[in-house]
Design a protein around this nucleic acid. Structure first.
Lengths: 205, 205, 205, 205
DNA sequence: TATGAATGAGAATTCATTCAT
DNA sequence: GATGAATGAATTCTCATTCAT
């Protein structure tokens, strides 16, 4: 009784997902170099050899993780956007980003370690850069909409620009999230956000 | 006719410094695991074996780099503090931190990758944590002195605290510096600082 | 179509045995330090790396050899004891020990070299000491049963004791076996035993 | 004020002796492979390089140790022989050998480890074999003088021969000395000798 | 003579990847 | 598909020996 093509495909996908999950955890925990293929296979409950039926190499696996992780993150943002108000405030956006980070801790941890290594970035091709660009673009869009409202003195006027503002925001969010995933249990996220809120309200409202 | 002890000592120091420099560059570029001892030796222009005359192990080398780097950073801050005004504003402090980061790019890159790896942190013992603690303490001291001046509504009053404010600042600085060392040539540091300035002036003055 | 677990297990055991045999020979010939893993692998007909599928380290391999060798020796003694008379004479015991030594030449050679190296003994933990203790105990038991029969002058009476007698016996047996395994083909074991026999008969009968 | 040739020679000899002593201690403690040249030089209080002014290689050093050690042992025997009775009994000879062993512990320990390794023996050329032969010859001479006096039954008569008897003796002495140097402090040498004495008196007197 | 820097050949060990079954 | 045996290159580290000074 041969399974249908669809069944096969579904099983494939399931197995892939299991391996990706195991690898993500281990990469996040020990870094790409520190997590051996055999450890990943063991955690995924399969043999080393089988892993190569699903992924051509350790690099391919990393790539798959990245794609999956990135898709998940985007999906989370999409869901949050739909659930929220029509047009979230910048602060809401930041808060949302931070809280979602906790949902994808392992991915952010992995991403954090990958971003430090030019070699790793090459492995992922342009993906990491694209990823950062997209975030920056989105932030810039936010800022473009808000910056005009900023009261400005004559002196700073020429230098104010959405791009730099987005950079600043990105650094802030990135910094918080980085610290957050490094101490997920003890980081005082609520307090930090509470301090951030008046800062951005005064600025953008 | 053997060299004098002084000669030996001088040569030792010179060689050590050369190795440290080579290793720092490679660690910063490829991470601790990614930079092989043989690659370090090659870049330092010596044989692999010789490295072990100067450092008992790769770990010891890392440690030496860390100590040296950290000492350099502190020295830079000390010099800047002496050169500057009596009591720098918080913004000056931030700006200073960012500009000094550029002077110690490789060290910060290395530190960035070390902070993502629990294994590496163990290698360095408590040093990394101490390092973060010291920065946080210093920021907290700044904030303690400034926060009372913040105009506060009744609602936020109970939650405002120097620790959380320091955390926020640390995230901001860390984020900027992290991005900065990753794109040392193209990062718009001046613009970002220009945007940051009014924010903190409005808050702390 | 994967192999069954039984097949794997059988293969494992076979491979392990082959490696143990190769290592035993080389350790016996060149000592633990002198026999490189690569040489062992080559003699076992496998790659270096594969050895580490079976033994976690060279030390583990040594340990496995020791356990196996010691078990074999004990088994040999057990078989000999069952096959022999109800209660063998001391001389029979000695003769048996010497002849069995030839059956386990490599093991005794290895043991001989291990016993000379404090470092190696540490590697094996208490095993080597236990091993010597067991032999001494067994000999002491023999002597305890026999010594009372010794005619003794008044002078030596106070000093005679089974422990010292066992020590003497152990030295004798150890000496013979050591020489024997060093010249397994040319050592005149029969003649030496022939000379030993009347000595111990006159003493213990 | 140039030193005389004799003075030079004396200094040379002194330095050599110091190195030999240091090396002997370390070889005895850790074995030939386990004692590094640098450790030897450090213990001798000189630089690594200088060692090669006195000995062409580590092997040469081993050889020098062997020559020196063997000469010392012979000298000890000579002195003991002169100090003792005109013709010592076999037992006296054995006792003397054991007690002298303690005086040359390190040498015997080294010898013990060398004798287990064919490779090491090759390094020393024929010397180890010669050394054993000489001992055996001396023992055989003893036995030749004494064996005729042995009361013999008709049965053992054909097999008794000085060579085998010497082998037996050698094994005994070797065994005792080996155990002795392995536990120089706790070995009950006096007791063991006390047990040995009647054995050999009954046989040879 | 005397120094310690320097080398290079190995040592043990790990690991991504391939392969026979 | 699925297994784990097998490989070989790379890694960290050690050490006898040589060399410039």
């Amino acid at each position: 009784m041969p399974r249908t093509k669809e069944q096969f495909h579904a099983m494939q996908e399931e197995s892939r997902a299991e391996i990706v999950q195991a690898a993500l955890e281990l990469f996040a925990e020990k870094g790409f170099d520190g997590a051996s293929v055999s450890a990943i296979a063991k955690r995924a409950g399969i043999s080393q050899g089988l892993m190569y039926n699903y992924f051509a190499s350790k690099d391919e696996l990393l790539l798959a993780i990245f794609e999956k992780g990135w898709a998940d993150v985007q999906e989370s943002f999409r869901v949050a956007a739909e659930a929220g108000r029509e047009r979230p405030s910048l602060f809401d956006f930041i808060e949302n980003a931070c809280r979602l980070t906790l949902k994808h801790q392992d991915f952010w941890r992995l991403l954090g370690s990958l971003r430090t290594q030019p070699a790793a970035i090459e492995r992922l091709g342009e993906r990491v850069h694209q990823f950062e660009s997209m975030i920056l673009q989105q932030l810039e869009a936010f800022c473009s909409a808000s910056l005009p409202k900023l009261p400005r003195t004559e002196k700073d006027a020429p230098t104010l620009n959405p791009h730099a503002e987005a950079r600043l925001l990105f650094a802030l969010i990135d910094g918080i999230c980085t610290h957050l995933v490094r101490q997920p249990d003890s980081y005082p996220l609520d307090d930090v956000l509470a301090h951030l809120k008046p800062l951005y309200h005064s600025r953008f409202l």
